[in-house]
Protein backbone atom coordinates (compact mmCIF):
# COMPACT_ATOMS: atom_id res chain seq x y z
CA UNK A 1 0.00 0.00 0.00
CA UNK A 2 1.51 3.26 -1.14
CA UNK A 3 -0.40 5.43 1.31
CA UNK A 4 1.82 4.26 4.15
CA UNK A 5 4.29 7.15 4.39
CA UNK A 6 1.82 9.60 2.88
CA UNK A 7 -0.29 9.70 5.99
CA UNK A 8 2.44 11.63 7.72
CA UNK A 9 3.82 13.51 4.75
CA UNK A 10 0.51 14.92 3.59
CA UNK A 11 -0.03 18.30 5.16
CA UNK A 12 -2.69 20.95 5.24
CA UNK A 13 -1.91 22.65 1.87
CA UNK A 14 -2.60 19.52 -0.15
CA UNK A 15 -5.61 18.86 2.02
CA UNK A 16 -7.15 22.27 1.43
CA UNK A 17 -6.64 22.00 -2.29
CA UNK A 18 -8.55 18.78 -2.54
CA UNK A 19 -11.37 20.16 -0.42
CA UNK A 20 -11.59 23.43 -2.28
CA UNK A 21 -11.76 22.39 -5.90
CA UNK A 22 -13.53 19.39 -7.38
CA UNK A 23 -11.22 16.58 -8.45
CA UNK A 24 -11.04 16.00 -12.21
CA UNK A 25 -13.13 12.81 -12.12
CA UNK A 26 -16.90 12.72 -12.54
CA UNK A 27 -17.98 13.77 -9.02
CA UNK A 28 -16.83 16.77 -7.00
CA UNK A 29 -14.88 15.38 -4.02
CA UNK A 30 -16.56 17.70 -1.58
CA UNK A 31 -18.15 14.96 0.44
CA UNK A 32 -21.70 14.51 1.60
CA UNK A 33 -22.90 16.49 4.62
CA UNK A 34 -23.58 13.35 6.66
CA UNK A 35 -20.03 12.17 6.02
CA UNK A 36 -18.57 15.41 7.39
CA UNK A 37 -20.82 15.25 10.46
CA UNK A 38 -19.85 11.66 11.24
CA UNK A 39 -16.18 12.34 10.64
CA UNK A 40 -16.37 15.41 12.89
CA UNK A 41 -17.95 13.36 15.68
CA UNK A 42 -15.26 10.69 15.31
CA UNK A 43 -12.61 13.40 15.40
CA UNK A 44 -14.02 14.79 18.65
CA UNK A 45 -14.33 11.36 20.26
CA UNK A 46 -10.77 10.60 19.33
CA UNK A 47 -9.13 13.85 20.33
CA UNK A 48 -11.13 15.17 23.30
CA UNK A 49 -9.70 12.65 25.80
CA UNK A 50 -6.21 13.39 24.48
CA UNK A 51 -6.71 17.14 24.78
CA UNK A 52 -8.11 16.70 28.29
CA UNK A 53 -5.15 14.53 29.31
CA UNK A 54 -2.72 17.04 27.85
CA UNK A 55 -4.46 19.84 29.70
CA UNK A 56 -4.24 17.93 32.99
CA UNK A 57 -0.58 17.21 32.37
CA UNK A 58 -0.01 20.97 32.38
CA UNK A 59 -1.62 21.23 35.82
CA UNK A 60 -5.27 21.72 34.77
CA UNK A 61 -5.01 25.46 33.95
CA UNK A 62 -8.70 25.68 33.04
CA UNK A 63 -9.74 24.09 36.32
CA UNK A 64 -11.31 25.88 39.29
CA UNK A 65 -7.94 27.04 40.69
CA UNK A 66 -6.65 28.27 37.29
CA UNK A 67 -2.90 27.72 37.82
CA UNK A 68 -0.35 28.75 35.21
CA UNK A 69 0.25 25.97 32.66
CA UNK A 70 3.40 24.21 33.79
CA UNK A 71 5.68 21.40 32.73
CA UNK A 72 6.67 20.57 36.28
CA UNK A 73 4.52 17.45 36.38
CA UNK A 74 6.52 16.02 33.52
CA UNK A 75 9.66 17.06 35.37
CA UNK A 76 8.41 15.38 38.55
CA UNK A 77 8.26 12.02 36.85
CA UNK A 78 11.07 12.33 34.31
CA UNK A 79 13.78 14.34 36.11
CA UNK A 80 13.30 13.38 39.76
CA UNK A 81 16.02 10.84 40.61
CA UNK A 82 13.61 9.06 42.97
CA UNK A 83 11.06 8.67 40.19
CA UNK A 84 10.51 5.13 38.99
CA UNK A 85 9.66 6.33 35.52
CA UNK A 86 12.88 5.39 33.72
CA UNK A 87 13.62 2.16 35.61
CA UNK A 88 10.09 0.93 34.90
CA UNK A 89 10.14 2.04 31.27
CA UNK A 90 13.57 0.46 30.71
CA UNK A 91 12.45 -2.76 32.36
CA UNK A 92 9.40 -2.87 30.09
CA UNK A 93 11.62 -2.29 27.08
CA UNK A 94 13.85 -5.13 28.23
CA UNK A 95 10.85 -7.43 28.61
CA UNK A 96 9.58 -6.35 25.19
CA UNK A 97 12.92 -7.04 23.52
CA UNK A 98 13.22 -10.44 25.20
CA UNK A 99 9.67 -11.20 24.05
CA UNK A 100 10.40 -10.13 20.47
CA UNK A 101 13.59 -12.20 20.28
CA UNK A 102 11.93 -15.28 21.75
CA UNK A 103 8.87 -14.88 19.55
CA UNK A 104 10.96 -14.56 16.38
CA UNK A 105 13.21 -17.44 17.43
CA UNK A 106 10.18 -19.71 17.80
CA UNK A 107 7.87 -18.49 15.05
CA UNK A 108 10.28 -18.08 12.12
CA UNK A 109 11.68 -21.63 12.13
CA UNK A 110 8.20 -23.02 12.79
CA UNK A 111 6.48 -21.10 10.01
CA UNK A 112 9.36 -21.86 7.64
CA UNK A 113 9.40 -25.55 8.45
CA UNK A 114 5.62 -25.86 8.21
CA UNK A 115 5.66 -24.25 4.77
CA UNK A 116 8.57 -26.33 3.57
CA UNK A 117 7.93 -29.75 5.05
CA UNK A 118 4.71 -30.03 7.02
CA UNK A 119 2.02 -28.09 5.14
CA UNK A 120 -0.63 -30.35 6.63
CA UNK A 121 0.25 -29.00 10.07
CA UNK A 122 -0.46 -25.43 9.03
CA UNK A 123 -4.12 -25.19 10.20
CA UNK A 124 -3.13 -26.62 13.59
CA UNK A 125 -0.21 -24.23 14.10
CA UNK A 126 -2.34 -21.31 12.95
CA UNK A 127 -5.12 -22.33 15.33
CA UNK A 128 -2.73 -22.53 18.27
CA UNK A 129 -1.24 -19.11 17.52
CA UNK A 130 -4.74 -17.62 17.61
CA UNK A 131 -5.49 -18.94 21.11
CA UNK A 132 -4.65 -15.62 22.85
CA UNK A 133 -7.81 -14.24 21.25
CA UNK A 134 -9.83 -16.94 22.98
CA UNK A 135 -8.15 -16.91 26.39
CA UNK A 136 -8.46 -13.43 27.95
CA UNK A 137 -5.29 -12.16 29.69
CA UNK A 138 -6.87 -12.32 33.13
CA UNK A 139 -7.73 -16.01 32.60
CA UNK A 140 -4.32 -16.81 31.09
CA UNK A 141 -2.49 -15.25 34.03
CA UNK A 142 -4.75 -17.17 36.42
CA UNK A 143 -3.57 -20.44 34.87
CA UNK A 144 0.06 -19.32 34.73
CA UNK A 145 0.13 -18.45 38.43
CA UNK A 146 -1.38 -21.84 39.30
CA UNK A 147 1.09 -23.66 37.06
CA UNK A 148 4.27 -21.93 38.17
CA UNK A 149 3.57 -21.49 41.88
CA UNK A 150 4.63 -24.97 42.91
CA UNK A 151 6.65 -27.98 41.77
CA UNK A 152 7.74 -28.96 39.18
CA UNK A 153 8.12 -25.34 37.99
CA UNK A 154 8.28 -23.06 41.08
CA UNK A 155 9.17 -20.01 38.94
CA UNK A 156 6.90 -17.62 40.83
CA UNK A 157 9.09 -17.94 43.94
CA UNK A 158 11.71 -15.53 42.57
CA UNK A 159 11.58 -12.19 40.77
CA UNK A 160 13.68 -13.57 37.97
CA UNK A 161 11.40 -16.58 37.66
CA UNK A 162 8.26 -14.49 37.46
CA UNK A 163 9.92 -12.32 34.81
CA UNK A 164 10.47 -15.51 32.81
CA UNK A 165 6.77 -16.33 33.20
CA UNK A 166 5.90 -12.80 32.07
CA UNK A 167 8.11 -13.03 28.97
CA UNK A 168 6.64 -16.45 28.20
CA UNK A 169 3.10 -15.12 28.53
CA UNK A 170 3.86 -12.10 26.32
CA UNK A 171 5.48 -14.34 23.74
CA UNK A 172 2.26 -16.36 23.50
CA UNK A 173 0.39 -13.05 23.27
CA UNK A 174 2.57 -11.99 20.33
CA UNK A 175 2.06 -15.22 18.38
CA UNK A 176 -1.08 -14.18 16.43
CA UNK A 177 0.64 -11.13 14.96
CA UNK A 178 4.09 -12.61 14.61
CA UNK A 179 2.90 -15.80 12.93
CA UNK A 180 0.63 -13.96 10.54
CA UNK A 181 3.32 -11.43 9.64
CA UNK A 182 5.99 -14.10 9.11
CA UNK A 183 3.69 -16.45 7.21
CA UNK A 184 2.66 -13.63 4.86
CA UNK A 185 6.31 -12.71 4.44
CA UNK A 186 7.25 -16.30 3.59
CA UNK A 187 4.46 -16.53 1.03
CA UNK A 188 6.07 -13.72 -0.94
CA UNK A 189 9.42 -15.52 -1.36
CA UNK A 190 10.24 -18.86 -2.93
CA UNK A 191 11.55 -20.65 0.14
CA UNK A 192 11.84 -23.94 -1.74
CA UNK A 193 14.40 -22.57 -4.22
CA UNK A 194 16.17 -20.44 -1.62
CA UNK A 195 16.58 -23.47 0.62
CA UNK A 196 17.89 -25.65 -2.19
CA UNK A 197 20.30 -22.94 -3.33
CA UNK A 198 21.61 -22.48 0.20
CA UNK A 199 21.92 -26.21 0.74
CA UNK A 200 23.84 -26.71 -2.48
CA UNK A 201 26.29 -24.07 -1.25
CA UNK A 202 26.74 -26.10 1.91
CA UNK A 203 24.67 -24.11 4.40
CA UNK A 204 23.20 -25.88 7.40
CA UNK A 205 19.74 -25.22 8.86
CA UNK A 206 20.74 -22.47 11.31
CA UNK A 207 22.61 -20.69 8.52
CA UNK A 208 19.62 -20.97 6.18
CA UNK A 209 17.20 -19.52 8.71
CA UNK A 210 19.42 -16.70 9.96
CA UNK A 211 21.35 -15.92 6.78
CA UNK A 212 18.75 -16.50 4.09
CA UNK A 213 15.21 -16.44 5.52
CA UNK A 214 15.60 -13.59 8.06
CA UNK A 215 16.87 -10.97 5.58
CA UNK A 216 14.16 -11.89 3.10
CA UNK A 217 11.31 -11.30 5.55
CA UNK A 218 12.80 -8.43 7.53
CA UNK A 219 9.87 -6.09 6.86
CA UNK A 220 7.43 -8.66 8.21
CA UNK A 221 9.67 -9.26 11.23
CA UNK A 222 9.89 -5.53 11.96
CA UNK A 223 6.11 -5.08 11.72
CA UNK A 224 5.57 -7.95 14.13
CA UNK A 225 8.26 -6.60 16.42
CA UNK A 226 6.81 -3.09 16.64
CA UNK A 227 3.31 -4.36 17.29
CA UNK A 228 4.66 -6.62 20.04
CA UNK A 229 6.49 -3.61 21.48
CA UNK A 230 3.31 -1.52 21.50
CA UNK A 231 1.39 -4.29 23.27
CA UNK A 232 4.05 -5.17 25.83
CA UNK A 233 4.99 -1.62 26.89
CA UNK A 234 1.48 -0.76 28.08
CA UNK A 235 0.30 -4.18 29.25
CA UNK A 236 -1.17 -4.10 32.73
CA UNK A 237 -3.23 -7.16 33.65
CA UNK A 238 -0.61 -9.91 33.39
CA UNK A 239 2.26 -7.82 34.74
CA UNK A 240 0.19 -6.73 37.71
CA UNK A 241 -0.89 -10.24 38.73
CA UNK A 242 2.62 -11.61 38.23
CA UNK A 243 3.97 -8.80 40.41
CA UNK A 244 6.34 -7.51 37.73
CA UNK A 245 7.67 -4.00 38.01
CA UNK A 246 6.85 -2.94 34.47
CA UNK A 247 5.50 0.32 33.08
CA UNK A 248 1.79 -0.61 33.10
CA UNK A 249 1.47 -1.26 36.85
CA UNK A 250 3.63 1.83 37.49
CA UNK A 251 1.22 4.05 35.58
CA UNK A 252 -1.71 2.41 37.33
CA UNK A 253 -0.23 3.07 40.75
CA UNK A 254 0.67 6.63 39.80
CA UNK A 255 -2.91 7.10 38.66
CA UNK A 256 -4.16 6.10 42.09
CA UNK A 257 -1.73 8.29 44.04
CA UNK A 258 -1.07 11.47 42.09
CA UNK A 259 -3.27 14.05 40.43
CA UNK A 260 -1.44 15.46 37.42
CA UNK A 261 1.69 13.35 36.94
CA UNK A 262 -0.18 10.33 35.51
CA UNK A 263 -1.55 12.59 32.77
CA UNK A 264 1.96 13.38 31.60
CA UNK A 265 2.96 9.73 31.69
CA UNK A 266 -0.24 8.79 29.78
CA UNK A 267 0.68 11.27 27.06
CA UNK A 268 4.16 9.73 26.86
CA UNK A 269 2.63 6.25 26.72
CA UNK A 270 0.30 7.37 23.96
CA UNK A 271 3.26 8.80 22.09
CA UNK A 272 5.04 5.44 22.31
CA UNK A 273 1.99 3.66 20.86
CA UNK A 274 1.89 6.24 18.10
CA UNK A 275 5.58 5.77 17.29
CA UNK A 276 5.21 2.00 17.12
CA UNK A 277 2.14 2.24 14.88
CA UNK A 278 3.82 4.89 12.74
CA UNK A 279 6.80 2.59 12.29
CA UNK A 280 4.51 -0.20 11.09
CA UNK A 281 2.79 2.19 8.65
CA UNK A 282 6.15 3.39 7.45
CA UNK A 283 7.21 -0.20 6.86
CA UNK A 284 4.52 -0.37 4.27
CA UNK A 285 1.37 -2.27 5.02
CA UNK A 286 -0.14 -0.73 8.08
CA UNK A 287 -3.35 0.37 6.41
CA UNK A 288 -4.33 -3.04 5.19
CA UNK A 289 -3.75 -5.38 8.04
CA UNK A 290 -5.80 -5.39 11.18
CA UNK A 291 -3.42 -4.78 14.01
CA UNK A 292 -5.03 -4.80 17.35
CA UNK A 293 -3.55 -5.88 20.60
CA UNK A 294 -6.57 -7.76 21.87
CA UNK A 295 -8.66 -7.13 24.95
CA UNK A 296 -7.22 -4.98 27.72
Amino acid sequence: MTQGGGAIGMRAPGALESVGKPAPDEKPRRGALWAWVIFGLGFLYFFLPLVATFEFALGHPTGPVKPEPSLRYYENVVLDPRSEFFPRLLFSFGVAIATIILSIAIIVPTAYWVRLRLPRLRPIVEFITLMPFVIPPVVAVFGLIRTFSGPPFPLMDTTFGSTIVLVGAYTILSFPYMYRAVDTGLRAIDIQSLTEAAQSLGAGWPRIIVGVIFPNIRVALLSGAFLTLAIVIGEYTMASFLGSKTFGPYLSLLGQNKAFEPAGVSIISFGLTWIAMGAIQFLGRGGQRIQVGGAR
Binding site: P49, L251, S252, G255, F270, Q291, G293, A295, R296
Partner: peptide
Protein backbone atom coordinates in the same frame (compact mmCIF):
# COMPACT_ATOMS: atom_id res chain seq x y z
CA UNK B 1 -4.32 -0.17 20.61
CA UNK B 2 -4.68 2.66 23.12
CA UNK B 3 -6.51 0.67 25.76
CA UNK B 4 -5.96 -0.21 29.37
CA UNK B 5 -4.63 2.06 32.09
CA UNK B 6 -3.81 5.20 30.05
CA UNK B 7 -7.22 5.07 28.37
CA UNK B 8 -9.03 4.92 31.70
CA UNK B 9 -6.94 7.85 32.96
CA UNK B 10 -7.63 9.88 29.81
Amino acid sequence: NFAGVPLALA
